[in-house]
Amino acid sequence: VLSRFRTALTEKKALDRLLKIINDQLSNHGVLVQHGAVIDASITPTPRRPKGKKSYDLREDGTISVSHSYQKGVDPEASWTKKGHNLYYGYKRHVLIESKEGLVLAVTTTKASSHDGAHLPILLDKVSLKAGSRLYGDKGYSGLPNETLLKNKKLKSAIQKKGNRNHPLSPAAKRFNKFVSKTRYKVERVFGSIKRWFRSSGARYIGLDKTHKQHVMESIAYNLYRAPNIILKGF
């Protein structure tokens, strides 16, 4: 029964609406007050990664064809990505959180190989940030398209500056990045708390839509878990 109910919620894409309804209620009670927002992404690995073998076939014309065979149970909608020196197979959780208390405002899910910076427009379309709000992000979100997007939405950019070999960061840019990091770290706390509190070490389901459902459910649980302590701090 629970499995069928979760499947129905996934098919109707109801959990994103539920997250918004709960956040609206938290806002009405003064728990969720938007001072700004932080964006970031984290990898959700899946244990259903391919462990296939290659087979080679020599044709009559002398060419060789290579085919891949995978074991059953592989999640075909996930993808590989590299972080540091490690390879991961799975998905990415992209979140937008409130910059003071760190409550989750919006979530989207992609393959692990997807670039972080391309999903800022999707997350911003899911929320209504006040004009003049500051948006914090790491260097993965830097670039003219996102800066233009924030300007058009009348939001202040606090995206860290990115240098390169020919144009190293100036001292002012380094100070700006340090200023941003003092707020941006809160999103790492969200990822860590979800993993620790809800034992969310990887994807529990197969497929992009069902993994997104998991991400949204964990975000709802995180906000509700944090809400009583935020209320108590106000007394």
Rank of each mutant, 00 (worst) to 15 (best):
G202F: 07
G143M: 07
A173Y: 01
K83D: 04
L87A: 02
E101I: 06
G137N: 05
Q34Y: 05
L208H: 07
Y205W: 08
E60G: 08
N23R: 07
K72G: 09
H212K: 15
L144P: 08
N146H: 07
K111N: 06
A106W: 04
S157T: 05
E147R: 11
G143D: 09
L32F: 06
L232A: 12
D138R: 04
F235Q: 11
V1W: 11
I220C: 11
N177G: 02
S27I: 00
G143Y: 01
T81P: 04
K13T: 13
L87E: 01
V104M: 08
G202T: 06
R165P: 01
G62N: 13
R189K: 10
K72Y: 08
D116K: 01
S3C: 12
S79I: 02
H215C: 13
A118G: 01
G202L: 07
A118D: 02
L120D: 00
A158L: 04
E98D: 12
A8M: 12
T211K: 07
K72E: 14
Y141D: 10
L124D: 02
K154W: 00
L124N: 00
A118Y: 00
K82C: 01
K12G: 10
T108R: 02
S200P: 02
A158W: 03
E188P: 03
I43W: 04
G52S: 11
T148F: 06
K154G: 06
S79V: 00
S114K: 03
A172V: 06
S65I: 14
H35P: 03
S133M: 11
L155K: 04
G117N: 00
D209W: 06
K82D: 00
A37C: 05
E218Y: 10
L58M: 13
P145W: 09
H119I: 03
H115C: 02
Y205R: 08
G102E: 06
G117D: 00
S69W: 05
P76M: 11
K92N: 05
I122P: 00
S79G: 05
D61A: 10
V1I: 12
V31N: 03
S3T: 13
G62D: 11
L18P: 09
S128N: 15
H212P: 05
M217W: 10
L87P: 01
P228L: 10
L26C: 12
M217P: 03
A158E: 00
H68Q: 13
L208V: 11
F235I: 08
N223W: 06
R165E: 14
V187D: 00
I64G: 11
R189V: 13
S181Q: 01
E11N: 13
K111D: 08
G30L: 12
A14H: 09
T148E: 15
I220N: 10
K54A: 14
G163F: 00
F198H: 09
N223S: 10
H167Y: 04
K20D: 15
G117H: 01
G192E: 07
K92M: 07
L144M: 13
I231A: 14
K162Y: 03
